[in-house]
Amino acid sequence: MMSSGTESVSISALDKGDNLRQQVLTAFPLCQLTEEDLIQNPQFCKLLATLSQYVDNTGLTTVLKRELEKAERELLTQRQTWLHFESIHRLLQEMIQEHSIRKQHGGGPAEEEKFYETMEQCLVVAQCIRLLENSSTPGQDQCPVLGLSAKQVLSHMPSAQDVWQMKQRLPSELQKHLKKKAFNLLAYYQPEWEKESEGLKCVKLSRLSELLESERRREESLTEKNRENALLLQRQAHSYLTELLGCLQVLQSLVLEYRLKAQKELDKKKIEYFEAKCEIGMQKIRAEMLELQLDTYTRDKISAHRKMTEKLNTELKAVKMEKQMVESKLASFEMFGREFEALAEEYSRLRQEIDTKTWALKEFTQHTV
């Protein structure tokens, strides 16, 4: 009874240690810790388990985490404000660029030309004023860029009537441009939706943000799941390697204890077996080669090769005789110098033809034999 109680206590202690290690590995995923490190350093494992109650998985305390979240919210607000103005500015620039491209292919109505000229001039003036404001440092006497002031730049603004007309028309034009960009984005996300009606596109466009958000959440959940699977795989690999090392030790002890005494005789038998098998294989290869030769060179083929050889020998003799005649003529006319270059070229051609036919005769002779 006492032994069973002791075993239950040890098992519960092991379970508690395993849970503690799992808690530490889960609480500090960014640390490159393994279960083996925690087993070898139990006090360090307890320290990390205590720290996990006061810090999050990134190592930040609760107070610092709240301050960081507050700063991130403020930064997000500032970023959203900047993105709002920056996106409108870029949209207006895109509208001006598209109008310039259309203008190159053909002019539009005068009202449209006036609208885009006024908008472009206003944007340029506003950008110049912003650069002047950014270049000036408060509390210092510094000459502005090119000696210009904001008042001088504002003097280049269009007339108040043109600006008022431009502002009246700008929301509708901006809405058209945004609608066009939204439809292009929708066609990029789902190309098969491009052929649908405008009303259906508007309905699907209103749901596009939800679809993208759901895909983003799905991607985040898959990333988190992959991280958990990687951690689980790491623990399983460690456990598997530990068991494998134990099995290897047991196997090594068995091999050392029960190894074969007649290993030499067994190796000799194996060598004889492989030698006989190799010899059989060589005999099969020779038989296949002979069979291939018999199938390739039949009696008809051999007689045809002989006829071709006889014909080539006859042609070779005729060419040799012709060569001798040409050589004798060439020797008799060598004294005349360059006037007989044509004869020398003919001699070279015949020599080349003789070499070619000699090679062909040699090849047929080899295959016939």
Rank of each mutant, 00 (worst) to 15 (best):
L91P: 05
V63I: 11
Q80L: 13
Q80V: 14
E86F: 12
H89A: 12
Q53T: 06
S52F: 00
R90P: 02
E67A: 04
T61R: 04
I88H: 06
N57Q: 11
K103Q: 14
I88P: 00
E98V: 06
T61C: 04
L51F: 03
I88W: 02
I96L: 05
F44S: 06
E86W: 11
Q104D: 11
M95L: 06
E69Q: 13
C45G: 01
Q78T: 09
K70A: 13
W82V: 07
R66D: 04
R73L: 14
P42T: 01
K46R: 11
H105I: 09
Y54S: 09
E67N: 04
E67Q: 09
Q53E: 10
K65C: 13
L68G: 04
F85P: 01
C45V: 01
E72K: 13
K70Q: 13
R79Y: 14
Q97G: 06
C45E: 03
T58F: 04
H89T: 07
L83T: 08
S100A: 15
T81P: 04
K65I: 04
E67F: 05
T81D: 14
Q93V: 05
H89G: 07
H105G: 15
L64R: 05
E94A: 03
Q43L: 12
A49Q: 00
F85T: 10
F44N: 05
S87G: 08
Q53R: 09
L91T: 08
E98N: 08
K65V: 06
T62P: 03
R79M: 14
T50C: 03
L83Q: 13
E86S: 15
T61K: 02
R102I: 07
E94H: 02
L76I: 08
H84M: 15
W82E: 14
T77Y: 09
E69P: 01
S87W: 05
I101R: 11
Q43V: 10
